[in-house]
Structure formats: structure tokens, C-alpha cells
Nucleic acid binder design. Sequence first.
DNA 1: ATGAAAGCGCTAACAA
DNA 2: TTGTTAGCGCTTTCAT
Lengths: 341, 341
Amino acid sequence: MATMLDVSRKAGVSKSTVSRVLNGTAKISEATRLAVFKAIEELNYRPNVLAQSLSKQETNTIGLVIPRGSNTSQYLALLIEISQELADQAGKFLMITQVSDEVDGGVKSIRSLVDRRCDAVLYYNNSFFDHYNDGDALSDLIDELPVPLVVMNCYLPRHPDHCVWFDHAQGGRLAVDYLLSQGHKRIAYIAGPLSQRTAQLRLQGYQEALLSSGIAVDPILITEGDRLYSGGYSACHQLLHRTRDFTAICCFNDSTAVGALKALQEKKVSVPDDVSLFGFDNDAVLDYLTPSISSVVLPAHNFVTYAMRLLLAHLNQTELPEFDAKLFVGELVLRTSSKPL
Amino acid sequence: MATMLDVSRKAGVSKSTVSRVLNGTAKISEATRLAVFKAIEELNYRPNVLAQSLSKQETNTIGLVIPRGSNTSQYLALLIEISQELADQAGKFLMITQVSDEVDGGVKSIRSLVDRRCDAVLYYNNSFFDHYNDGDALSDLIDELPVPLVVMNCYLPRHPDHCVWFDHAQGGRLAVDYLLSQGHKRIAYIAGPLSQRTAQLRLQGYQEALLSSGIAVDPILITEGDRLYSGGYSACHQLLHRTRDFTAICCFNDSTAVGALKALQEKKVSVPDDVSLFGFDNDAVLDYLTPSISSVVLPAHNFVTYAMRLLLAHLNQTELPEFDAKLFVGELVLRTSSKPL
DNA sequence: ATGAAAGCGCTAACAA
DNA sequence: TTGTTAGCGCTTTCAT
């Protein structure tokens, strides 16, 4: 690998001159300029970004930490996609890593990116952090880190300017409220893995909606899936085995709902005639099932955009973008799996 | 940010001693050892990985370049998952980036990782490279780069030891051969985006299978999707509009098949009674449709494992793993969307 | 317009 | 067992 020194010698100039040519950081005579480019060409020279970063004390890199294994999710894929676009726009290199072990709230992974001197880190919490001091670890980290950290998908009371979160409970309420308004009273729920905060909150939304309509929460109507098709499938079979006394099912997410649909069909329960069905996240596949499955859509685009803006504002010490709660509410997407009672 | 120098001063020792304590690269008296750790603790010191890498001339990092936007695909998600596991096992940091612009065969993205001094790069080609000298750009790159590059999902004649590929045509033949053996004769095909090599090859497999059974390829039975649900849906409608004279449809991938199923159902074409249907890639969702959709599964695990072994062998200058073609053939997964004629 | 030299934070050979 | 010193490849003052 040719170094800048090699280039400078070949071009008959000093290292600094080569650096200036490359960075356009000073006026250079056309002659030397050409000589330098020629040498670069001949030596096939490429700058060592490591050395540049060490010297400049910045890497022009944003680190993105995503939960491992969850990249099966269309939702997360979208999130990555948008992060990438926004990083590109800001002229930043996006370095993606998967969280190694979310038991520690992602702290290790974030640290690892900071040790590599990312200028800033974006962390999507997916999120077992309630097992870990309820986010205190993340809050402490934000205080301590020499670079900005923005956490997606959880609320950090001590750092409202460093987190972006959905009101998952609101999303959870949405489908239930709708069903109630359509005359449904016995509504079942297939939860996600309840070790995850997100799953807890969506379930909570279901419960809140029922209670505020004066309907008691009946534990017999609640089962737990695993956020995958298979979990939705078996949880629904379990539910059907327990009771048939319900007219609707709300699910933690779309995969769960797809699995549940299969179970219902196997038991000759008609959707939506016997039972209305709701997913969550609005996966593209929902339109292609028979019946198509109603869902709740979260504004992922607004969400990530806000997170990235927040991050860049911290990074550039500019004014923080205004928080507009309206941008973060979920909405119903009605399809043919649900109908009035 | 405290540096090693700060630590050394606080501990009353030299920089090198601190370095030795941290790297266990020499015997250290228990006393100084403790003093150093104490100073590290107090200063909240963390080594600068950039500086380490520059000095050691290695980063202990493997770069993974994946196609942008395709992370919607369960298949690619699996691939990332496995890469991560294998990198972990090898004690390497996996740095994931999305290809910025595959028109150049990913060259820019790969270069960018090498400029950051990744010790090695893994590139998943998804792949428009046939527009770009048929992979010559990649082959040239392999010759030129100072670090090993292994390319997944394309064959590079000049570098058989630097690529891992599936025989997509074989996979394509599989479903068609099966259908032919079951008495089907009029078999339609919904292709993927034909700008992609993978889509071309799978289509080619379809054609080869027909021809080797003495059946002419009828262009009226071939349409082009976009690898998404929506493309499969509209391509299938288009096909149905052209003709109903077929008893089976093979698709570029599973999403295409799911879209096609919807179109068929809308037109009251029964699957599998009127038409048998095949996807490709064996997505988990296939089991949860009614009917469940038959598919072709590629051994992604073997594939990535081999690629990573190849990469590590190049990196460590050890013997290259043996290539066993048997590990890379696709297999049929029969479900209820297909039946004998 | 260009060069010399110091410094970014670390490792490693060489001394002691 | 520990310290001194010279790099790693670049940027950036400070001179000229």
C-alpha cells in the first residue's frame, strides 16, 4: 500500500503538499497539482482513513446498532433503509452493527462503536432494558460518552432529547377501540414475548382500551406468542382450545396475526365472519393474504428522520428539532379481516 | 477522553507499561498492574481503537457489503445473521455497510471498507454486475486490493477461490422438472427483474428444463415481476389476461409467488386444482398461506459458512477449505400449492 | 505556493 | 519488570 510519503516523493514534493492537493485546503500551482495526481495514479494510492481520522479527531462516521436477529422484520429493514439515506444526505458513513447481547441494554455494542470513534451513535432498542435498571444504563451512558447517542424506541426520562419513542400503548388501544366501536366485546389478544418492553406496552394498550370501556380484562383471552408466524399459530391454537367465546383477536404484530389466521382457518373459524383479526406494523404481506389482514401502522419514516435529526443536531451543536407528538402516533389500516359485529 | 498517556501519568508509570497491562504482552508486577487499573478506572479510560489499528496495522474487522434495500429479504437477513455468528467465532468485529450503487458492481463500497482498513471484505452481489464487464471489475479489484475479498452469489472465472455461488439455474430447473414429472406440460414463469443476474439464471433453468424434455419455450407464458409481492400480483394478472392455457406457474421467488396466488384467487383460479404454484427461497411465510406454497430452498447456511471460511483462510494464509459442490445445490420443498396433473 | 515539524493515541523494538 | 524511542499515515500550524 502506497502511503502519502511515497506519493510525495514520486511527485517530488512534500507530504503536506499532497495532503493539500487531496483536501483542497490551500492554493496549489497547477504543475505540482498534476504531478501529484500523476503519482497518485501511478502508485494506485488511496488515503488511509484510519490515519486521517486519528489526525483529524473525527471519523465522519455514524454508528447504527440494531438488534440481532430482528432483521427479519420488514419494519427494521425500513428503519435501516431510512437511516442510510439520511446519513448519506448528511455526508456521513453509516456503520451498522448488530447488538451482541441486549441483556446489557446494548451498552457493550455502543461502547464498541464509540471506541472506534464513531462521531455519533444511533441505537435501536428492542428492548430488554427493563431487566436492566429500566434504561438507567443507557442514561448513564449518554452522560458519560464523549459523543452523542440517540436511542430509538424507548423513553429515557433523564434524556428526553436523546430518545425517540412510539406510544406503543396508543397503537395497541387503536385496534381495540375500533373493534369496541363496532360492537365487539369479547376481544382476545396474542401478545409478543413479554420480556420485551414493546410487547408489554402493546398489551397494556389492549388492556387500557378495554378498561376504559368498562370491560374487564379476561386473562383467558390473552396468550403469548413469540413475534414469529409459528408463535402466533400455536398461541392461537391454544386460545381456541381454551375458549371460543370471542369475536375478535388483536395481535402483537403482523407475523403473529398471519400465524393466527392459519390456526383459525384450520379450525374452520371464518375471518372476519366469526372472528375479526388485527395485526400490527402493517407488513406488505398483509394485502396478499385471504382475507387481507387489518393492522396498525407506525410512522417509521417520521420516527427515524426525527432520530437522525436529533443526532445531527447534537453532533453539529445546532438547535434541536422540535418534537411534534402528532408525528409519532399510529394509525389504523383497515382491510378485510375485520368487520362490525 | 483520557488517553493512555493520562493513565500512565496518573499511575506513575510509562505509556508502554499501560499498554502491556492492557494487552498482557509482558510480565508486570502486581503493584503497578493494580495502579494502572486504578488509574484506568478513575479516568474512565478506553483505548482508542483507531490508534491501535493504525499502530498494529490491522483492525480485526471484517467488512460485509450487502445490497441496499434488499434487507427486506428473509434470505439476506439469514445471511447476515450467519456472517455475524461466524465473525464472532473468529473474534472479528463485523462492520456492515449497504452498497451505495450497485451499478459499479459494488466497487465503491468495497473500496470504502478497504480504505477503512478492514482486514477482509465479504461482498454479497445481488447483482447487476453483468452490466459492468461481467464481473471483471470485481476480478480486477481482487487482484489489486491489499486485503482478501470474497464475493458471494456470483462466479468469477479468474478467481474461483474468491467467490461462492449458487447454481440458480439448477434451482430453477428443479421445480420445472418436478412438475413435468407430474404430468404438467404448460408451465408458466414469472421472472424477477431481468437486469439481475440471479433472475436471469433462474429463468434460464426454467427454459433448460422445458427444452430438455422436448417442450418448446412459449414466450406467452413468461412475464416479468419485480421480486416483490406487488410485482408477482400484477405479472400474474397480466399472464391470466394473456392466456389461461397453463397448469402451473413457477416464480422467481416467494414474494412473487405470494402475489401471484392473490391474483389467481381473485380470478377464481384454484390452486392447486387448476394451477400448481411454486415459489423460490422457502420463506417462512409460505407455510401460513392457504394453500401453503411449494418452493425451492437454497442452502444459505452452507453458503455463508463456506464464504466466511474462504475469507478467513485467505486472511490467515491457511489452507483453503475444500469446495464440495454437493453443499450448494437447491432442494424442493413440497407444500400444498402443487399437485400431479 | 510549498516545506518542516509536531502531534493524533497507540504498539513494539531496544535498552536497561 | 519497566522506560525510552521510533514509528503507524495522516493533518495542520508555523515558517519561508
